[in-house]
Amino acid sequence: MISIRDRLIFTGQLLFTLLVAAFLIVPAILSMLAGVTVNYFQGIRSGVTLQWVIQVWELYADTIARSFVIALSALTVTLIVGIPAAYALHVRGGRLSRVVEEIITLPLAVPGLAIALGLLLTYGGFSDFRRSWLFILAGHVVFTLPFMVRSVMAVFAAIDVKTLDESASSLGASPWRRFLDVIVPNARPGILAGSLMVVTLSLGEFNLTWMLHTPLTKTLPVGLADSYASMRLEVASAYTLVFFVMIIPLLVAMQIFADHKRRQGAGR
């Protein structure tokens, strides 16, 4: 028998949850709706249109493309640097490895603006580098590398990669063969999770990028800020819509992947 009190509590909780969800979702929905409204000040009654989205595409297609180039480049670099780094840190162990790990992780704690300032002070003088998108890539690698290293190291810790490595070496495999045949395939869940994280973070990164960009090297979020500041509200909103369309599939993929991994873990 469910008492009235229990039912009241349940209803209360449900209402509260819906309220919080609404608080988060309603602005996003309103903003996206605004992006397809003919005239925001007259409301949705003025009609629905894709003209703003098309305008955004015309104005910012290169920005969006650049964002993806940077995200994929950041992924490439973090894969090439991050996996061997995680392997070395895990297999070596000891205090030095801990210190290096902490240093790699530091960008998570330091504000993006401070990292950007550091990069500007250090490399600002190399004006070709400063002006190219590679400068932003450098910032994104610094910012996303810890996510790759951490998620790969988490897998290494779970599968006793050190003994696997030793057992491959006892069978005659050189360090490079062991890395390719045994280490990387077994670290795949961590590499995938890390990759999704790196791409998503790189696409969405604003603080650091805003400091590092030039008018010719804007990225998706910087372009968003730009459109908010200088375009009519409908265009800015259409931009938000585009941004969501780009980033949400990635977030969903990440979530599905995390669920899949959890289920696998429970099955074992």
């Binding site: 003994t163 696997l164 057992s167 070496s169 006892s170």
Partner: peptide
């Protein structure tokens, strides 16, 4: 190094390759 010694080794945890 071990990879050129031509030894065979069985580990306590077996360390079979899961992949």
């Amino acid at each position: 190094p071990i990879e050129r010694r031509n030894v065979g080794m069985v580990f306590q945890s077996y360390a079979l390759f899961p992949n």
